[in-house]
Nucleic acid binder design. Structure first.
Lengths: 387, 387
DNA sequence: TTGTCTTAGTTAGTTAATTTAATTAAGAAA
DNA sequence: TTTCTTAATTAAATTAACTAACTAAGACAA
């Protein structure tokens, strides 16, 4: 249970000031005091501590507003680094990032087909070694490793329980990496990592309820409320790929029919195209559907427009359940955004419950794009540092 | 922005202690200290204040565990009262309640058909006067009035914007009642009030994510996370009656097709029965469907079983979106629980995404029943008092 | 019955961290 | 050059927690 102690009081203020500098920096001590309501002496004391911890640094002097020039404070970006790993179903990506999402090193490998747990973990270890070698002289600044793993993940133990795409089961990621690198390791579901990446580095500022929907081979989402990821009683928060939007339809990988995922994933788009278009090629992919649409082939445009409508329905369901302040769309399917977004927006205007929601529901395309997940993985460590 | 101040520290501890007494009382100061982690002197100081504020009282002595007998503390139930009003589409109910949900007085009127705003507000004022007159000698103990209003409500202004059932629009409830009684007034949506009532007086203890689904003439829900109601960006959190579970279906009052509400509301049950049963009477109601089912008429049992399945799908959608720790079902339709619940439970076991969720998803029938909404309205005031 | 041990709760004094008020720093404007 | 502003720090005061020691009151065993 939360207890009111001096440490609590202090950490609340420290967190507020650190995040003010992170989000509003460069900023003076005086402005921090004004904007947070914390008194100037307290701000000074805490800033001194943050500088001692190598998290904050003084930069140039600001403009005088009629008196002494303010000393502007900034996050000390290169004071610490974090490693992010994006373990997808086809490749493993790793990066080294600083505190504000600058990528200092990057590496990627393709996963062997029919890989074993051992081979998979060896590949992951190797990619991390590669990026570490690129910052060899600054390795001691690395705070930890965050892993975004596709499929079902047990967060506490850091074990990847199950992946329908690779067939891997019970991969002890956290244990293996902690032993190999002697660094703290956090493992997270890929959609939730993506949400953290987008929120942390997408420059949105503070948003009370922030939701990122990842539409690719599968559909997942991450919900961030008051700067914190939501998990739910059984870690199912955000599994909107398996929300039913139809009483019938194709069988989903989860065994049910009617799942949102079976209507809007990459595979679903291919299936729809083949059904709607007689002369569709056998080796059609979602990428090709988009390519044909861009070439102006109306049949393929219709396929994407239909998909856009269905994505809109899924979004409305999310709006009528948790009503986020900001919804961000990402993942492979959203590369076709130019054909999807108009339909998504129209569906929202048609179906949202109130005039206010029709007008104010905010849906945008991911600002970070492909790197959102791997940066989010890295940011998993930052969350602990900053809160 | 949250600030670390002495007031914060104090209020955190005061809230923790007050709620410990509320939920775990009768309890000794020593046990409060042990269970909250707050030190005994601090507990004593704060308890002294709570007693001075008439919120807490000493009761009998407890059993000695080998030393001095503990003085047990209890909520001073009759120190303050609150008024709750449940303004449905047919009647207005009002009660006076103490701090633990004991009803001291109660009154109810039927709303005039085609009522005007003025007549409606006059009826509401009259019902409140009636219950107040019953506790005439203790009126000064009343802290305020909470109103649970059906339809769309603007919470800040306390205006009822729109009701499809009565046709009323822009009823200035808060303003009118505050002028009439000179007491603080809070107006809330009926499903959210029901959630608060169930959570506050249903004796569940602390539940991190608590959801109440109200299935009656319409379908709504309330979500309580960390003891607080969730609203969302446009106050749409919990509008699961308008989550799409089908790509076609009957037109909903909101104008869309496929809404959850059009499959499981009272009207939907009647429609389903008429469709499935050739000789169904013209004046069939949901109550009658239940009565026939109880008489053993299998056709009607099937209608309810089908409804149970669909409710199950709606619940699974909620689980895969916010994954509550506890889901409570209430409202008129749930009077048929004996036919609905087995199907609901089975659907959850069939469709939940993981084994853990199949086994652990907790769905129960409202413990409070009909009074949940009106007690929740009253509890709106208590929320402020206790947090 | 008396002494010792246990548990409950209070009192006195200490400590952590904020706040207020005063002070220094440094520049702008007249 | 004086006066006014804004920025930041220092010193003292305040808040509300914590520690340690103490009183209260009963259990239990010799």
């Amino acid at each position: 249970m939360l207890r009111g102690t001096f440490q609590l009081m202090k950490s609340v203020n420290k967190t507020a000031i650190l995040n003010k500098i992170r989000l509003a920096g460069p900023i003076s001590r005086a402005d921090i005091a004004k904007e947070t309501g914390i008194t100037p002496p307290t701000v000074s004391t805490i800033v001194k501590e943050l500088m001692a911890e190598n998290l904050v640094a003084e930069s140039r002097l600001g403009k005088s507003k009629g008196g002494r020039k303010p000393t502007l404070l900034l996050l000390k970006e290169d004071g610490s680094y974090v490693i992010g790993v994006d373990a997808g179903s086809k490749t493993i990506k790793a990066i080294v990032s600083d505190l504000v999402g600058h990528v200092l090193a990057r590496a990627e490998v393709e996963i062997y087909p029919h890989s074993t747990n051992e081979a998979f973990l060896e590949q992951m270890t190797a990619v991390i070694r590669t990026v570490l070698s690129e910052i060899a002289d600054q390795c001691e600044k690395v705070l930890g490793i965050g892993v975004a793993m596709h499929g079902v993940v047990e967060i506490e133990s850091g074990i990847s329980l199950y992946s329908s795409k690779t067939g891997l089961r019970n991969v002890p990621i956290k244990e293996t990496l902690e032993a190999a690198f002697d660094l703290p390791v956090t493992v997270e579901n890929n959609s939730r990592a993506m949400a953290i990446g987008e929120y942390w580095f997408g420059d949105y500022g503070y948003i009370q309820r922030f939701s990122v929907i990842n539409i690719g081979r599968g559909v997942g989402s991450g919900l961030i409320v008051n700067d914190k990821l939501c998990y739910g009683a059984q870690d199912l928060t955000g599994e909107i790929g398996h929300v039913s939007i139809s009483l019938d339809g194709d069988v989903c990988s989860c065994g049910n029919r009617g799942c949102f995922e079976t209507f809007v994933s990459g595979d679903a788009i291919v299936k729809r195209a083949k059904k709607m278009i007689q002369d569709a090629p056998d080796d059609l992919t979602a990428e090709k559907v988009y390519a044909f649409a861009k070439e102006g082939k109306t049949d393929y445009i219709h396929v994407l427009e239909e998909t856009g409508k269905l994505i809109g329905i899924g979004i409305i369901n999310l709006v009528h359940t948790v009503n986020p302040d900001q919804i961000v769309l990402g993942g492979g399917v959203m590369k076709s955004a130019d054909f999807l977004m108009p339909q998504i927006q129209q569906t929202i205007r048609e179906r949202a419950l109130t005039e206010k929601a029709k007008a104010e529901t905010k849906v945008v395309i991911s600002k970070i794009g492909d790197d959102a997940t791997v940066l989010g993985a890295a940011a998993l460590l930052l969350t602990e540092l900053f809160y």
